[in-house]
């Protein structure tokens, strides 16, 4: 009944004096999962035209900070998540420019803070840059970029079967269903 509610609502609060115009910010915060599912999973590597190779590499590094490799679970780059984000961005107005601007911010912040390219930083320093993006005020470019990318990355990553074993999830839900539904889950 209210299933769609949670899929379509994102925070809509707004403050004046921001670096993104309101319409653009709202467009970028709405309707994420539907667009993700609308993107072509079968064309995961179908080109990265909107970004130059360096920006694409920064995007990949950024995503690996959000979703790093662990013992049980692959990294973002192992499932080509950056290419999926690029595919997705083609269908969302203003998304390519958000990506470009956000990645520029990552690059510039890295230079200002550590006098180094983001790509050459150790993971701890990369995490510091990513933390700084999330820590900016609502509706500022780095925060909208980080939150949008975070939600899209999570939705794409956790729709990939390689992410499921770490959760103990034996999906997809069909054709087997869950015939053990009356019992405690096997940990």
């Amino acid at each position: 009944m209210h299933q769609q509610l949670f899929r379509n609502q994102k925070e809509l609060s707004w403050r004046s004096g921001l670096s993104l115009d309101r319409r653009t910010a709202l467009q970028l915060m709405l309707g994420i999962p539907a667009l993700i599912f609308g993107a072509s999973a079968g064309n995961a590597t179908s080109g990265a035209a909107p970004l130059d190779p360096k920006a694409f590499a920064i995007l990949g590094n950024f995503l690996d900070i959000l979703l790093p490799k662990t013992e049980e679970s692959p990294s973002a780059s192992e499932i080509n998540l950056a290419s999926r984000i690029i595919d997705l961005s083609r269908n969302v107005p203003n998304y390519p420019s958000l990506l470009e601007s956000g990645l520029n911010w990552i690059s510039e912040t890295s230079q200002l803070s550590f006098q180094s390219e983001f790509l050459t930083l150790h993971d701890e320093k990369k995490e510091a840059v990513v933390t700084a993006a999330f820590a900016q005020a609502d509706q500022t470019l780095p925060r909208v970029f980080a939150k949008r990318l975070r939600d899209d990355a999570m939705a794409i990553f956790y729709s990939h079967p390689a992410s499921w074993p770490a959760l103990g999830f034996e999906g997809p839900i069909q054709p087997s269903g869950f015939l053990d539904f009356e019992k405690a889950p096997v940990s």
């Binding site: 994420i32 900070i65 959000l66 979703l67 999570m154 990553f157 956790y158 729709s159 999906g171 889950p185």
Partner: peptide, 25 residues
Amino acid sequence: PIAYATRIVDGWGKDHKRNMQEAFG
């Protein structure tokens, strides 16, 4: 898993993955 990652478990990085494992189900 997507609902958990976008509505239940906040954050990112290794902590997020660990919290996902703990929260799921």
